[in-house]
Amino acid sequence: MDTFKYQIVRPDKLLSEGDALSVTLLTRTGELGVLPHHAPEICALGEGVMRINHVPDEDGETLTRIVISGGYAGITDEHVIVLADHARRVNDIDPDVVEDTKDDAEDALEELAADDPGRSYYESKIRWCDLLLKVNEQYNS
């Protein structure tokens, strides 16, 4: 079967890599399916859940769902690299931790002045937490 390499990286680590049969990216304009030998493309990513159909991993799973937000994806003939601002496996969301992180971010945001450049960091963090909670409800309950 024809496969291609994929890498999902976020700023602090390499989240996932391997051989994929197909990848469904979530771009700003909608879903984008990638099969082997896709034409080279660089696209902006939106917010939501992307899917990877891959060769069976250690647990025998063939489908990985990853929730992403922001960033870019680079597609070439042999591989797909997803450079996400935020990324997390859908089955790896702990709602309690997310709620705590969100509360902390909200507290930190309240302490900052209205024109502080640090605000955008916390705002995006809160948006990301909201997205995680929504996705968690949708897939894990």
């Binding site: 080279p40 902006a44 070439t76």
Partner: peptide, 20 residues
């Protein structure tokens, strides 16, 4: 395992290269 990107392939851009 670093993935080597091929240089100067004709990429399609979404949105434009400048914005990317």
């Amino acid at each position: 395992s670093p993935i080597e990107m091929v240089h100067n392939t004709n990429f399609t851009f979404d949105p434009s290269p400048r914005e990317v």
